[in-house]
Computed example of a mutant assay.
Amino acid sequence: MGLLALAAWTLVRTALRPVDALTREAAGISLLETGCSLPAVPGDDEIARLARTLNDMLARLRDAAARERAFVDDASHELRTPIAVLRGELELALAADRDHEVRHSLRAALAEAERLSRLADDLLLLARDRAGSLVVRTEPVDLLDLAAAEGRRLGTLHGLRVEVSGDPVVIDADPERLGRILANLAGNSATAGASALRIHIGRGPDGTTLQVADDGPGFPPEMLTAAFARFARGDDARTRGAHGAGLGLSIVRAVVTAHGGTVTAANGGPLSGAVVTTRLPRSGAPLQVRGAQGQLEDEP
Rank of each mutant, 00 (worst) to 15 (best):
R103F: 09
L271V: 08
T262D: 07
V12G: 07
D145K: 03
H100T: 14
D145Y: 00
A190G: 05
V170W: 01
D235Q: 08
L247I: 04
P300R: 03
G35S: 07
D214C: 12
L185I: 06
G294Y: 01
E25S: 15
E176D: 13
P205N: 03
L50N: 01
S76Y: 08
L11P: 11
R137G: 15
R24C: 06
L224R: 15
R115N: 09
E176M: 05
H200P: 04
L197T: 03
L92D: 15
L249G: 13
E89N: 13
L16R: 11
V135L: 13
V255M: 03
D73M: 10
R24Y: 12
T156R: 14
A147Q: 01
D298M: 00
L287W: 08
D121V: 10
H104F: 12
A108K: 11
A111F: 02
T53P: 03
N188F: 05
H77K: 03
G43T: 11
G268R: 11
T278L: 05
L16A: 12
S133K: 09
G294R: 00
I29V: 07
G244C: 09
G43A: 09
S165T: 10
L106F: 10
L54S: 02
G261T: 04
G2P: 06
P39E: 05
L86Q: 13
G179L: 02
R233N: 14
G291Y: 02
G202Y: 00
E46D: 15
L287S: 07
N55Q: 07
P18T: 04
G187K: 05
F231D: 12
V252Y: 02
Q295K: 14
L54D: 04
D235T: 14
P18Y: 05
A109L: 14
D74E: 11
A148E: 15
A113S: 07
L134S: 03
T138L: 08
A108I: 12
A226H: 15
L144E: 12
G216I: 13
G43F: 07
S250E: 06
P217I: 05
T225F: 06
M1K: 11
V164W: 01
G248V: 08
P281T: 00
P220H: 07
V275A: 08
D74R: 06
V162K: 03
R152E: 04
I29G: 01
L61D: 08
A111T: 11
E112Y: 11
A183R: 14
I171G: 00
G248S: 14
P270L: 14
Q295S: 13
I201E: 03
L31H: 02
G2L: 06
A59H: 07
A274T: 09
Q293T: 12
E150K: 14
I171P: 04
R52D: 12
W9H: 10
Q288P: 01
V135H: 13
P220L: 06
A15E: 04
G88R: 10
A109H: 12
E297C: 05
A131V: 05
E299A: 13
V41T: 12
R177P: 00
G179H: 05
R128W: 07
N267T: 10
D145R: 08
P281I: 01
V255H: 02
G268E: 01
A108H: 13
L32M: 08
L296Y: 00
P42K: 13
A59T: 06
D215N: 14
L106T: 09
A285Q: 00
G35F: 02
L79C: 10
T14S: 14
I181W: 00
E101I: 09
L157D: 01
S250C: 10
L154A: 05
L185F: 01
L86R: 12
L224K: 09
